[in-house]
Amino acid sequence: MLTTLIRVIKSGWFNFWRNKWLSTAAISIMSLTIFSITSLLLINVLVNSLTTNLEDKIDISVYFKLGTSENQILDIRNELVKLDQVRSVEYVSTKEALKLFKEKHKDNEVLMQSLGELDSNPLESSLSIKAQETSQYESIVGFFNQEDYLEIVDKINYLENKIVITRLASIVKVTRQVGSIVLLILIIMAILVAFNTIRLTIYSSRKEIKVMKLVGASNWFARGPFIVEGIIYGIIAALLALIFIYPLLWYFSPKITTYLPGTDLFYFFQTNLISLFLLQLAIGVALGSISSIIAIRRYLDV
């Protein structure tokens, strides 16, 4: 058994080495495939972080009438946190609101002056709420429709921003959906190209496979070397793809960051280098071996 395995591997290795042109062609196509799949995954990461960023910017603020006690608001906050739809609730007290306001408008003298002339703090305290998903804001707003709350809530800015929020939400949703469909189609295309390349390399050896069978090789003994060859293609192709991607990302990632702040593909790539490489390796090996097994089947029937 072990001897057979060693023979099969050796034979596959020799085939690979002696068919330099064919191997080079197959490897270049496969590394392109792996390269495309990896790039598509990275683009997906980009789209995801982009939409998450976008989603993160969406929140609603609920303003409470002046004079509402802090305890009352904190009670509401505790109620809100219990809701499944709510991701986070941040309490902004009147003092904090004032501080933020001053910070924001410190260059506007007129505004600062008129603020100084006021005796009391005119700003209302508020809760700023983020939902798990953008579609859930409507129901969170519904929460405040209870009678107890109607008296103390002054306004909810969702109602003003509703159109923007729903539009943003639908953009996020569509982007993700279209993104994953395009991703899937492109990945399938890349896989088909690689599969057909392997099929051609095996087609060119169909007579050999027949001869092997006729001189007494079992199916596995005839098939084995081709699978080994396919696996070697996969491993080398994965390595090549990695070597290509590294400098490309190093160069392009800062440029992408300028356009889309908050995304750093190169950093993502570096931190996930090992798992990405293992993924590429798995794609390469699976593609090489499974394509070989499927492609060789029809020639074994002798």
Binding site: R7, S11, N15, E208, V215
Partner: peptide, 19 residues
């Protein structure tokens, strides 16, 4: 019908390996 990627020696050895 020799195997083109194998030497004369390997072609003969292949039949024995297969066996």
């Amino acid at each position: 019908r020799l195997l083109p990627n194998k030497t004369a020696y390997e072609n003969i050895a292949f039949a024995m390996e297969a066996g």
